[in-house]
Design a protein around this nucleic acid. Structure first.
Length: 295
DNA sequence: ACGAATCCTGGGCA
DNA sequence: ATGCCCAGGATTC
């Protein structure tokens, strides 16, 4: 089954390179994405994206879930600019940027456990090797095999030495212990956090090994559909302290300043905080990439 | 509450 | 060549 959607609906390359997903590859003009146990292929044709999937009968629904195509992009952008005109510049520069959504909160959690003190190219490789080693094959194409993301049960049985060989470093133990913690708390524990108030869900997540404030916010925002989550990493901290909250300039990111920034977003953007974060984060990320390209 | 050191690894850079 | 710094942090002291 093949379907198509207008290209202006979302800028796929920008979305999947803005730290919201780690399993998309460019293959010529085509983009191949893996999510949980699904494979999605997207390529441009004229002014539309052609979408197909070897694993799903309903690739359009899959794409809709991943890129939140049910959300009216223009409306979000208008709303953000109305609440703070400074967002206009970033929206104009990245009109197709969307907040993404992971199919599986578990996959989201395990993936972001790989991110602390790390960089995107390395994270991408780590996750690829993790799936090849512990995931189930989900599709074949000639010599090529696609692997699904390993389950908590599979990861709980992994051993630290193997993960370290795969390049996980000190994060190996967090991955295994978090998987074991999920097993102990039972199926559905993670997804049950969807219905908790933001600060309560965040506090719960932070009881998992390796999950601090930033990783918790990533899991809440991308994996658990909580629009109030505002992940603050080095990029966000720089962007916020330089461009938005000059009082924070020169200070360091602590529990207190982290909470201050989150509350600033909540007061200003409310339920749109997560979207606001994504435009700001990506603006800073891309700005820095462009700066280093010319260096 | 805050700052500093530690943790794996790879790349860029002096 | 070698060391240092940093990369989407968390944890401990």
């Amino acid at each position: 089954m093949r379907v198509s959607i207008p290209a202006w609906e979302f800028d796929l390359p920008l979305c999947v390179r803005s730290g919201q997903a780690f399993r998309w590859r460019q293959n010529g003009a085509q983009w191949i994405g893996l999510a949980d146990a699904e494979v999605l292929k997207v390529e441009p044709r004229g002014s539309r994206w052609i979408v197909q999937s070897p694993t799903s009968e309903t690739p359009f629904q899959l794409l809709t879930r991943l890129f939140r195509l049910e959300v009216d992009l223009k409306k979000v952008q208008t709303e953000l600019i109305r609440r703070d005109p400074r967002w206009a510049e970033w929206i104009e520069a990245m009109p197709g940027l969307r907040l993404m959504r992971w199919l599986s909160a578990e996959e989201c959690l395990f993936s972001f456990l790989c991110t602390p003190a790390n960089n995107i190219p390395r994270i991408t490789g780590m996750i690829e090797r993790l799936c090849e080693r512990y995931g189930e094959p989900i599709a074949h194409e000639g010599e090529m095999t696609y692997y699904g993301f390993p389950t908590a049960t599979q990861l709980a049985q992994a051993d630290e030495a193997t993960l370290r060989e795969l390049g996980f470093g000190y994060r190996a133990r967090n991955l295994i212990e978090a998987a074991q913690a999920l097993q102990e708390r039972g199926d559905g524990w993670l997804d049950s956090l969807r219905v908790l108030p933001y600060w309560d869900a965040k506090k719960e997540l932070m009881t998992l090994p390796g999950v601090g404030a930033k990783v918790a916010d990533c899991v809440l925002l991308f994996g658990l559909d909580n629009p109030l989550a505002v992940p603050i990493d080095t990029h966000m901290w720089q962007a916020v302290s330089e461009w938005l909250m000059p009082d924070l300039k020169g200070r360091s990111l602590t529990d207190r300043t982290y909470r201050q920034v989150v509350e600033w977003f909540h007061e200003r953007f409310g339920e749109w905080s997560g979207w606001a974060h994504q435009y700001l984060f990506t603006a800073h990320l891309m700005g820095k990439e462009m700066a280093s390209d010319h260096a």
